[in-house]
Amino acid sequence: MGRITLDKVRKAFGDVEVIPPLDLTIEEGEFVVFVGPSGCGKSTLLRLIAGLEDVSSGEIRIDGQNATDLPPAKRRLAMVFQSYALYPHMTVRKNIAFPLKMAGLDQAAQDKKVEGAASVLNLTDYLERRPGQLSGGQRQRVAIGRAIVREPAAFLFDEPLSNLDAALRVGMRMEISELHERLKTTMIYVTHDQVEAMTMADKIVVLRAGNIEQVGSPLELYRAPRNVFVAGFIGSPKMNLIDGEEAAKRNAHTIGIRPEHITPSPDAGTWEGTVGVAEHLGSDTFFHVHLPGREEPMTVRAGGEVSLHHGDKIFLTPDETQLHRFDAQGLRI
C-alpha cells in the first residue's frame, strides 16, 4: 500500500515546460518532502500525483498500477490543501464525513469513523461547530481528519503549515510526524521551508525549475550536497559559499563551509574580518563577519557566551575536513 512511482513524468502548460521528464520512486510508508524555492514546480508535481492536473507525458503508478489516467477520486490519495479547503457551510462532523458519504457508507459507519478520527486529532469537542468558528490549528486538524477517515494509500500535503503562526507551526509539525509514526502511511509533503523538510522527512526531494536536484535523507543532503544549489538551500543559517582565489587554492571553483565548521578567534586564523551583526539565540550566537573583498558576510556559529561586538576584529579558521568543494558546473567534487 502506498508505493508511488513516477516514470518520465512531464508537464507543460502550453509551450512552457514546467516539469521536464522526471523519475522518482516513493517507497511504501515513507515521509517524502518536496522542497524548493517558490515556483520550482513542487506543487505542480503534487497535483500531478493527485490527479488534479493531467500529465503531458509519462506514467504515474500507484502500487504498481498505472494511475496516469485515473480520476483523482479513484487514486486512493487524500490531500490537505494550503487553504485547508474546508466546506464552510458544513459542521466539522459533516466535513470529516463528506468523503465517507461520497463513498456511500451508511450513517452508523460514518459516525464511527468520524468519532475515531476526531479523538485522534482532539476534535471531539468541536464536531458540531462550523469551520468559521475554529482557530487556524483546529481547521488544519479538521483538514487532516477529512484526509485520514478515507484510509488512503498516501497523504498529500500542499504547504499545510504556511498559514499558521510560528509557534503553532512547530506544534503541528510534531503532530504530523506523530501521525505518520502511528499510521505508517506514505506521506508526500510540499514545502518551501527547509526547516520543515529537515525535521519531518525520511527522504527529501530538492527541486529547482522542475528538475530534481538531489534526493536523499535529511542528513545525507546536509552532509553531502550534490551541487551548489542544494548546498545553499539546505541548512539554516545557510552554508557560506566562497568563489575565486580561496576556492582555487583548494582546487575548486566554489567552496562551501557551514557556519558550525568555522572556528572564530580574536587573535589568529586563516581569514581576517570584522564582526557585523550578531544574532544571540542563547544556546548559540551567529556572527555575520565581513571579509575584505567579499560582499556577503560569512555566517559563523559560536557558543552562547562569546563576547564579540560589532566592529571587532576577528579571525576565522575553517575546518578543512568539512569543506565542500564544487566545480565550475556547480557539481560536488
Binding site: 490527479g51 483523482p72 479547503a85 466546506y87 468523503p99 461520497m102
Partner: peptide, 18 residues
C-alpha cells in the same frame, strides 16, 4: 468560489453532480 474547495471535494470522491 474557492477552486481548492472544489478540488478537495473532487479528491473526496464527489462527482460533478455531487
Amino acid at each position: 468560489l474557492d477552486s481548492e474547495r472544489l478540488e478537495a471535494a473532487e479528491m473526496d470522491g464527489a462527482g460533478p453532480l455531487s
